[in-house]
Simulated scan of single mutants.
Amino acid sequence: MSPTDYGNLAYLGLLAAVLVVWMFIANRGGLGRKLQHLAAWGLIFLGVIAAVGLWGDIRQTVMPQQSVFAEEGRVELPRAPDGHYYVSLDLNGVPTRFVVDTGASGLVLTRHDAERAGLDVAALLYRGEASTANGVVRTAPVRLDEVALGPFTDRNVRAYVNEGAMKTSLLGMSYLQNFSRLEITNGQMVLER
């Protein structure tokens, strides 16, 4: 916890103590009833704190997942709560999460995802550059033996590894152009081959 978090916690504790003292002073009769109410409010307060603290985990659990319809040659990606579309691809057999970025030219991997896919990140040569919203970053060209999205498998796929810090790998147009149709409708991105 940061010093600010400790300060906020101390403030809330002091506020709660003042409210409890005021409640007992304001009505001195019926102490048992007041303790019941105090316990109920304490449990409500703890429940709210737990829900706020676990919200990230809860949201990941209930977040809709991609749907693959192999017979129809279609993949449906639901819009995430943050407004982006995410997809899981298998890179050389390793499941990897991507944010779909139609503004990105290529398939761009984080160093971590590249390493998980079996690429030797220590031997990469960062000789390319890419313009991003955060400025220019250096990139290393790589080839992925296999990229699979459900039943759709592509081999010898060109990609880039970003030298800079990136939270999630990007699925750009060089991969998306493998689909004959890309449509966003009713909060879903539909990819068809």
Rank of each mutant, 00 (worst) to 15 (best):
A40L: 02
G29P: 04
D113S: 14
D145E: 15
A117F: 11
P141A: 08
R116L: 15
R74A: 15
I25F: 07
T132W: 08
V75W: 00
R74P: 00
L191G: 01
G30H: 09
A140D: 06
G7Q: 10
P3S: 09
P78M: 03
M166D: 03
R33I: 05
F152D: 05
D57S: 09
L9Q: 14
V94L: 07
F179T: 01
A148R: 15
T102I: 11
M1Y: 03
V142Q: 04
E192T: 11
L149V: 13
P3H: 08
D82I: 13
V18T: 15
L31T: 11
A133R: 08
L14C: 12
V157L: 04
M189K: 12
D154P: 04
L149T: 13
D90V: 09
V161W: 01
A51T: 10
Y86W: 00
P81I: 12
G13E: 12
G73T: 02
L35Y: 06
V75A: 00
E71L: 04
S2V: 03
L119D: 01
S2A: 10
L35S: 04
P64S: 00
L15P: 02
W55I: 03
A80L: 03
T153S: 12
L170V: 08
G32D: 07
R79M: 13
R155N: 06
Q60P: 06
V20T: 08
E76L: 13
A26I: 14
F152E: 02
A114G: 12
N162T: 13
L182V: 00
R97V: 00
R33P: 04
D113F: 01
T168H: 08
I58C: 08
G83P: 10
I49F: 07
H84V: 13
L124K: 14
G128R: 15
G128I: 12
L191Q: 00
L54E: 03
S105Q: 14
G106E: 14
S88N: 11
R28I: 12
I58R: 06
A130I: 15
A133Y: 05
A122P: 00
T4S: 03
I25V: 15
G42N: 04
P95N: 00
A148V: 00
V48L: 03
A50I: 09
I25P: 03
G13M: 11
V48N: 01
A140S: 05
E72M: 09
I25Q: 10
G42R: 01
G135L: 15
A130S: 10
S2E: 07
P151H: 05
N156R: 11
R193K: 13
V121D: 07
L14W: 10
A104S: 10
L124P: 02
G83M: 07
L19P: 04
A10L: 14
D82H: 04
V121W: 02
Y11D: 14
L182M: 15
E71Y: 01
G7Y: 07
L15K: 05
L89H: 05
W41I: 15
K34M: 14
S131T: 07
G56Y: 01
H112P: 03
N156S: 15
W41A: 08
T4K: 01
H112Q: 11
W55K: 10
V52D: 02
N27L: 09
Q66M: 14
A50V: 12
